[in-house]
Design a protein around this nucleic acid. Structure first.
Lengths: 144, 144
DNA sequence: TAAAATAAAGACAATTAGGTCCTTAATTTT
DNA sequence: AAAATTAAGGACCTAATTGTCTTTATTTTA
């Protein structure tokens, strides 16, 4: 579904947002520990999120990553997915046809469409903040 | 979503079923041509389908692959997916947690569940025959 | 100003997925 | 019986993804 990089990115973003709510920056080391991900690889995906403007990074002592302002309310999960995996999750044909469309559908097209659209709706309508609150309340988890 | 191998398997099965309806066997060469897939690689996935009992194969001149009896009515797409990709499409956590469950959910769990279940329902309730009829009638396509 | 702490960046390595090739086995046709 | 046709199987190759390591740049603290 999502690539590993994207999975790490979403989990990392949730952790970073939860720290940002406490006005703390999250260091790469802390992130990797809290989401149980490979540090250097996670760094790469965080760089992409940073370049996409979803998070900001600061070097030096007490540096790290943060979500600026109360932005976590307006950042949608779809933005993270788009930054890392592109839009292929929503657009790709389930049977791998290159030109699958309403006009030229694969045999599975009409049945698969609701699933794909459902996924798209959910990632577009779920904010980073939505996912952060469950973590903060202790109802959801980022590792194991 | 599905692996390439699984995409080819589903497309191949649909073509084979459409030929079986005409009491013809489909040769590997024909299959690869009709679904526009790499021949040798497709052969591997057809071997898996064959070992799983979903299709049967016959060697020698005028041999090839077929769907026996009127089985294409009782073969569900889920069986093909299971034979090639296993059940991870329905079971895997969207954020990659190893033990994600109702008791220990990832932040995306509750939102993602309907999508995953929707997919499962669709592949379990769609038969090979369902997908074959659109092809036979010319309404759906297996390539490009 | 020097040292420490941190992210950025690029080169590299390992793993997995996707794909090819060649030989063998089985069946049919001649 | 010999030749032709087809799938099976194994070894191999390639590309993409995932992951590591080392150096550099930036910032803060001592």
């Amino acid at each position: 579904m999502f690539s590993k990089a994207c999975e790490y990115a979403i989990r990392a973003a949730i952790f970073i947002a939860s720290e940002s709510e406490k006005d703390k920056r999250a260091s790469l080391k802390d992130i990797a520990r809290e989401i149980d991900s490979p540090e250097a690889f996670t760094a790469k995906t965080l760089q992409k999120l940073s370049r996409s403007g979803i998070i900001t990074s600061t070097k030096g002592a007490h540096g790290g990553f943060e979500v600026k302002g109360d932005l976590s309310n307006t950042i949608m999960i779809s933005q993270i997915v788009l930054a890392i995996d592109g839009d292929k999750v929503y657009t790709r044909c389930s049977l791998g046809l290159h030109n699958c469309s309403e006009d030229h559908p694969c045999p599975f097209h009409s049945r698969f469409k609701p699933v794909r659209n459902g996924l798209q709706q959910i990632v577009e309508n779920t904010s980073l903040k939505d996912l952060t609150s469950g973590l903060v309340s202790g109802d959801t988890f980022l590792k194991i």
